[in-house]
C-alpha cells in the first residue's frame, strides 16, 4: 500500500467553502479521492458539489463520515494553527495543511502539542501528497502529470516537485507516493519521517529527495540515509546560485549558517551515498540510472 494517502483515505476538507478550498476539493474528488466531508464553522447542513456534506466541526464530520484525513485551507488570520489542533484532537490521523503564511511561533506551539500524539502532520505551506496507483490525491498538485510506479518523491517545494514528476513520467518512471513537506522554517513531518515510511513501503523501490537552501533538514536526511535507509536515493538541492542572507520566496529558504549552503547539503548527501542530480534538467536521467 502507498504511504500517507491510499485506498483507506477518507478525506475531510477544512475550509471547503473558500475560493481555494472549494476549487481544490473538487479537483481531489475528480482525481478519485474519497472526499467524504467538509468542515466550516457555521455552515452545518450545507452540501458541497452536490454530494459532500458540510459540518460545523471536525468532530461532527468524523462522527457521521468516519473521515480519517484532513486537508486544511483555513487562512492564517482565521487560525490555521487552531484548525490543525482541532483535527488532531478529533482523532484525524493524517493532517495536511496547505495554508501559506502561518506564523512560525504558532507552528512551534502546534509541534509541541502534537509531539506525543499519533498523527501525521504535513505542512503548512505545502502541496500535499498524492498516490497515483490508488488514485488518491490530497493536495493542490496537478493530478494528470502523475503515473503509478515505484519511485517515491519527497520535496520542500510545490512546482519543483511537479517538475520532477513531469520528467519522471515522461520517461515512463511512475511514482508510488509524492509528498511535499513544505517550505516553512517549522513544518510537520520531515524528510526523515517520509524516508522512514518509504523504507517500510513495499511499493517504493527508490526515492527522489529534493531539498533547498536554508536550515539543516537535508543534513538530517543524509544522516538517516547513511545509517538506515536501504533503498537508492537520488537528490537535487536547489539554490546553488542564491546569495547569503536573502530569502528566496520560502520563509525557510534563507542561508544563515554554513549548513544552509547548497554545496554543504550536496556534500553531506553525496557522502551518505545519495546520487546527486547536478541540475533540475537532469532529474529524469539520474533517476533512470538508480531504478
Amino acid at each position: 500500500m502507498s504511504i500517507i494517502v491510499n485506498s483507506q483515505t477518507k478525506l475531510l476538507v477544512q475550509g471547503i467553502t473558500g475560493k481555494e478550498g472549494s476549487f481544490h476539493a473538487k479537483k481531489c474528488k475528480e482525481y478519485g479521492t474519497n472526499l467524504v466531508a467538509g468542515a466550516v464553522p457555521g455552515r452545518d447542513g450545507e452540501i458541497f458539489d452536490e454530494s459532500v456534506p458540510i459540518f460545523d466541526s471536525v468532530q461532527d464530520a468524523i462522527d457521521s463520515t468516519e473521515a480519517n484525513t484532513s486537508l486544511i485551507f483555513v487562512p492564517p488570520h482565521l487560525r490555521a494553527d487552531d484548525a490543525i489542533i482541532e483535527a488532531v484532537d478529533a482523532g484525524i490521523q493524517v493532517v495536511i495543511c496547505i495554508t501559506e503564511g502561518v506564523p512560525v511561533m504558532d507552528m512551534v506551539k502546534v509541534s509541541s502539542y502534537i509531539r506525543d500524539k499519533d498523527v501525521i502532520l504535513i505542512g503548512p505551506n505545502c502541496p500535499g501528497a498524492i498516490s497515483p496507483a490508488p488514485k488518491v490525491k490530497v493536495g493542490i498538485m496537478p493530478g494528470d502529470i502523475h503515473i503509478p510506479g515505484k519511485v517515491g518523491v519527497v520535496s520542500r517545494s510545490g512546482t519543483l516537485t511537479y517538475e520532477a514528476v513531469g520528467q519522471l513520467s515522461k520517461l515512463g518512471i511512475g511514482q508510488s507516493t509524492c509528498v511535499g513537506i513544505g517550505g516553512d522554517p517549522v513544518t510537520g513531518i520531515s524528510f526523515v519521517d517520509v524516508l522512514e515510511m518509504f523504507q517500510q513501503d513495499d511499493e517504493t523501490e527508490a526515492v527522489v529527495l529534493i531539498g533547498e537552501i536554508g536550515g539543516n533538514r537535508e543534513q538530517e536526511a543524509a544522516e538517516y540515509i547513511k545509517h538506515n535507509f536501504k533503498k537508492p536515493v537520488a537528490s537535487l538541492i536547489v539554490g546553488q546560485t542564491a546569495p547569503k542572507g536573502k530569502r528566496m520566496g520560502h520563509a525557510g529558504a534563507i542561508i544563515t549558517g554554513k549548513d544552509g549552503l547548497a554545496e554543504e547539503k550536496i556534500r553531506t548527501l553525496s557522502s551518505a551515498g545519495a546520487s546527486i542530480i547536478p541540475s533540475i534538467a537532469d532529474i529524469g536521467e539520474v533517476v533512470k540510472e538508480i531504478v
Binding site: 517550505g183 542564491a242 520566496g249 529558504a253
Partner: peptide, 12 residues
C-alpha cells in the same frame, strides 16, 4: 511560478 522552481531556474 513557485519558489523552489525559481531557485532551480536560477541554477540552470
Amino acid at each position: 511560478n513557485g519558489a523552489g522552481l525559481a531557485m532551480a531556474t536560477m541554477d540552470v
